[in-house]
């Protein structure tokens, strides 16, 4: 389950190792991502959560090679089905985007061109990546729209994006992301702009399609509820690092990293009686220019001790998860002794 060893690496669709992204500014280099590692298996949904500025979206952009300058990957590697993709030339990367990695962004309006009919956009994308005739591509586009739950797709396909509602537009974007049968879909806050009743429909569509096609999904969101419903495993990010990664049920019900625990406790629950106070993490996430030495979470951590302020905790396997926290180091060494 840990997907750490080389033997298991082969069945990972996506494998990220020690990825570092830095932004070079006049005031020196800012590390937006600091040596993060994770894998996503076939048909698996990995949720990536964290608060704003934790580095969730940068992770997505780094994988598809779309980091805007002055940001760039300065270390580590990204492999798609075992093949390195972080050092590809822009042309080669363009062939991978859309074909082997599909993308779904937060705002469906910015992912669709308002001046073209949905049919034109879908058919263009399909024909760019797959050797199909215009007619075959149109049929495929209609099938895809039906699959993502757009009623009467043969009529709706010739509409413009503005003629769809927000939820329907996001379905079109999902169809667009899936049209070349990618191995991996990166969904960056796919439901954040939608109302809850529509959000539930979209989550259902993403889950169903990935289950049926065996597509690996990286689901980036700040909404733990969405993760709980959708993901198989979850990575909790903090200040450009992964604090904890493991099966979604374990991480939500019994988080090991103090930040993950604070995050779960601070979410109001539908089952709360309204009497209990929410868990409060004092302070706020540090700026990239002022990440403290040692563990990035140490100034806010209720269980901080001497070592946390000096040594950066390395991600270590604890049971079926990987946790970057000295507290759990100590437990391991105690158990070993």
């Amino acid at each position: 389950m840990l997907r750490m060893g080389d033997a298991e690496m082969s069945d990972s669709v996506l494998s990220v190792r020690d990825l570092v992204v830095e932004f070079h500014t006049r005031h020196g280099a800012l590390r937006a991502l600091d040596r993060i590692s994770f894998d996503i298996g076939k048909g698996e949904v990995l949720g990536v959560v964290g608060e704003s500025g934790a580095g969730k979206s940068i992770t997505g952009s780094a994988i598809i090679g779309l980091i805007d300058p002055p940001g760039r990957i300065t270390g580590g590697e990204v492999r798609l089905n075992g093949e390195r993709i972080d050092n590809l030339a822009p042309d080669a990367m363009r062939k991978i985007r859309g074909r082997r990695i599909g993308m779904i962004f937060q705002d469906p309006l910015t992912s669709l061109n308002p001046l073209y009919r949905v049919s034109e956009q879908l058919i263009e994308t399909i024909r760019t990546h797959l050797p199909l005739s215009a007619k075959q591509a149109r049929q495929r586009a209609i099938d895809l729209l039906a699959e993502v739950g757009i009623p009467a797709p043969e009529r709706r396909i010739d509409s413009y994006p503005h003629e769809f509602s927000g939820g329907m537009r996001q379905r079109v974007v999902i169809a667009l992301a899936l049209c070349a049968e990618p191995d991996l879909v990166i969904a960056d806050e796919p439901t954040t702009a939608l109302d809850v009743s529509v959000q539930a429909q979209i989550i259902e569509v993403i889950k169903k399609l990935c289950r049926e096609r065996g597509t690996a999904v990286m689901l980036i969101t700040h909404d733990m509820g969405v993760i709980a419903e959708t993901a198989d495993r979850v990575a909790v990010m903090y200040a450009g690092r992964i604090a904890e990664i493991g099966p979604v049920r374990d991480v939500i019900k019994a988080p090991l990293h103090p930040y993950a625990a604070g995050l779960m406790g601070s979410i109001p629950s539908l089952e709360s009686d309204g009497e209990t106070r929410l868990v409060q993490i004092p302070g706020a996430m540090p700026r990239l220019s002022a990440i403290p030495p040692g563990c990035a979470f140490n100034p806010r951590c209720p269980q901080v001790f001497g070592r946390c302020r000096v040594d950066r905790p390395e991600p270590k396997p604890v049971g079926n998860r990987i946790v970057a926290c000295h507290l759990h180091d100590a437990q391991i060494s105690e158990a070993a002794a």
Binding site: D223, M224, G225, V226, L270
Partner: peptide, 24 residues
Amino acid sequence: RMLLDAVPDLAMSGRKRQGVAGEI
């Protein structure tokens, strides 16, 4: 009822969602 059913929840009770139909 529909709204409560649609909210993703941390409890992960595994409850079966009713299909939520339509939009506002």
